[in-house]
Design a protein around this nucleic acid. Structure first.
Lengths: 131, 131
DNA sequence: CTACGTGCAAAAAGTTTGCAATCGC
DNA sequence: GCGATTGCAAACTTTTTGCACGTAG
């Protein structure tokens, strides 16, 4: 029998925060933002809810070089990000790659991800002013 | 005055293990392998040595989806990996991408990384046999 | 009512740091 | 000998889990 999922204030707040975000968020960012709606919300619940939503196919996990896991709605899921060396923020980008991948025999590709490393406009400016 | 670096059995063993590897290794893998040479080697020393070698420009850090950091010699540094969903091992690949990246104004790209997610030959076989 | 969900605290996993003992140079 | 290096244990960070209480349906 399929498990039944309950609609709780905690889950709704996590969902709402991710939906409202313009870039993938970390668990602690979700906690901070969701507590505006549900102050007693705990970090464990955030993690449990994020995992649940990922399993349900509603959210996608994004893991980039910085190490921290980020989450975004699948409808808006990107396979390409620009990751700023200076501020570590991740920006979704459109990377149209006409690829020719020499994938050896036996390997099965499920998905491709592209990460661009560099400096974002904000940090470029700051460096120019301070250098 | 520049710091002097000493040549120790511990450092040499870490170096040797990474040099001998055919794929980027995690710290715990380095520890396990290097202990064949230096049994009393500690994990903290592995981390300290890896960081030292990265700072020296001898090793490169590789961070992929699985979360754990891997290390490989810079001479063999790859910008493209195949990461197995099942066993989490990382395989260097050649990804010749003829790209056309629409990078917005103000962004400066320093480097590009491509990660392929999927199943490696070993795990494909195991799944076939057990499924 | 009752199984699912929550908050808290403790546990894990990966990495870093403090410190006294050790060792390269 | 002196200062760099090491091993151990403890601290830290991020994520997961155990448990008793709370609550949606």
């Amino acid at each position: 029998m399929a498990k039944t999922f309950r609609r709780t204030r905690q889950r709704e707040s996590v969902r709402a925060v991710i939906e409202a975000a313009t870039r993938p968020l970390r668990a602690d960012e979700v906690l901070f933002l969701a507590r505006e709606q549900v102050p007693e919300l705990g970090l464990a619940t955030v993690y449990r809810t994020l995992k649940l939503l990922v399993d349900e196919g509603e959210l996608a996990e994004v893991k980039l070089r910085s190490g921290a896991t980020r989450y975004e709605p699948v409808q808006r899921e990107h396979d390409s990000f620009f990751l700023c060396d200076a501020c570590s923020r991740a920006f979704p980008i459109e990377a149209r790659l006409t690829n020719e991948l020499a994938l050896p025999d036996g390997f099965t590709m499920r998905r491709r991800e592209v990460t661009l490393l560099g400096t974002c406009p904000t940090c470029s400016e700051n460096q120019a002013h301070s250098g």
